[in-house]
Design a protein around this nucleic acid. Structure first.
Lengths: 235, 235
DNA sequence: TAGATTGTTAATCGATTAACAATC
DNA sequence: TAGATTGTTAATCGATTAACAATC
């Protein structure tokens, strides 16, 4: 899913008419690779811990050791965004953290909708870690009539029917899907139709979404299954 | 972390004595790439859904469309393990599923320990999806004295002090860590010391483990933070 | 100044894709 | 047989690592 410049050159020729339609190459200035973007939040978190420990300066070597990444990779990753360090010294923890958070868009706050308030959804709604830098869960949806109107973590649970209205009202771009697999695609369709552009999906199913919508998966069972492969081969 | 044959050739020479110690190259027959192993559980799950739908034959093309992977990649991935299809026809869903599950070690059942029974831990313990192919949560641990002896999903919560004993008794190789970040490393150390070889970590911290122990991370906040990067750059 | 560490380029490594002979 | 689809090889693409001049 690298930033690919899709240049469409459609040539329509018929006997009486020759038309050349050339859609200009939309020049998305090309973004750093997605693998790099995915590592930035780990760098940010590690820097937050360093700050808590009262450490104000760090080298790529030291940072790398904490998160099991090579020093070269950290420097290369950061180089996509600018120059943040000082030769012979390293990085100022607070300054680098600020800059990474700015790059990740975490200096603004993103309103988040959570769909599905079962055991997992409740754990998510209650987890303080989610009320993290840049994220705030502002709406809960669930289809179960029993749950409607109940409060979790200070938020009233609403029916899925209110998705379009509420998403638009709050201008919500980010959603968490924690419904059973069978419902996940239809919930996703509703969210996307209402304007959501990034979805974190806990349901064990691959979602189909239109271009321009981001989906990431939380899939603990798949991850465990990938580890049993190695265990089955031990000794 | 590819399978690297570490050949140690240590040459000790001193004036009176010359010793050549050559540790034989331990010939781990080299494994398929880890990216491939990580995709196998997704193939397996998709095949289970196909079976539920009553579909008994599938081509790499069709399977790929369901999980957003190219047909070539599926065929290449499977080729690391053998030949499972028929030219002109495709794959027998049931047979391929069985074989992948066998490769992943899911034909045996793996006992799983869960450490940390807060909101998240309870959701994990109760989630039926975890009582999935090949996995069974058999022990719950938590340090909170209030929780000791309470039952969740038919299992009594035990003190962390019982980790060594219980892990050994049940011969547990797989554990899920769902404790606060500050406790995650020490819990991990206990688990590993007791014989655990695969850890699924929900705490927002990178764990340090000895060679031969597998760790994977569930990190929804980092994943969300990596998506806000793109949202911040829209239009 | 000497030592340390950055930012960047080039070399290496690894994963994905395209293509096609084999064959059901 | 003709059409479809596999398994595999070679080509391409992309990510990681090594190395080092620049410089604090």
């Amino acid at each position: 899913m690298g930033a690919i410049c899709l240049c469409l050159l459609t040539i329509v020729v018929n006997f009486y008419n020759a038309t050349v339609i050339a859609e200009a190459c939309v020049d998305r200035l090309d973004l750093p690779p997605d693998v790099v973007i995915r590592r930035l939040p780990l760098y940010a978190r590690s820097l937050r811990y360093l700050l808590q420990e009262g450490i104000h300066s760090v080298s790529s070597q030291e940072l790398g050791e904490r998160i099991n990444v090579t020093a070269a990779q950290i420097r290369k990753d950061l180089s996509y965004f600018g120059e943040f360090g000082k030769q012979g010294i390293g990085y100022d923890v607070e300054k680098l953290l600020e800059q990474i958070e700015d790059i990740l868009g975490l200096t603004q706050e993103w309103s988040v909708a959570l769909v599905g308030v079962g055991h997992l959804g409740q754990a998510i709604a209650r987890y303080e870690g989610f009320h993290s830098k840049g994220l705030r869960i502002v709406a809960l949806f669930d289809n179960d009539p029993e749950k409607l109107g109940q409060e979790v973590s200070g938020l009233k649970i609403m029916s899925d029917d209110h998705i379009p209205e509420v998403i638009r009202q709050h201008n919500i771009k980010v959603a968490i899907v924690a419904v059973p697999a069978i419902l996940a695609q239809s919930v996703t369709d509703k969210l996307v139709a209402a304007g959501v552009r990034a979805i974190l999906n806990y349901a064990p199913i691959i979602l189909q979404v239109p271009e321009g919508v981001w989906v990431r998966y939380i899939d603990p069972v798949a991850v465990l299954h990938s580890m049993t492969y190695y265990l089955a081969r031990e000794e």
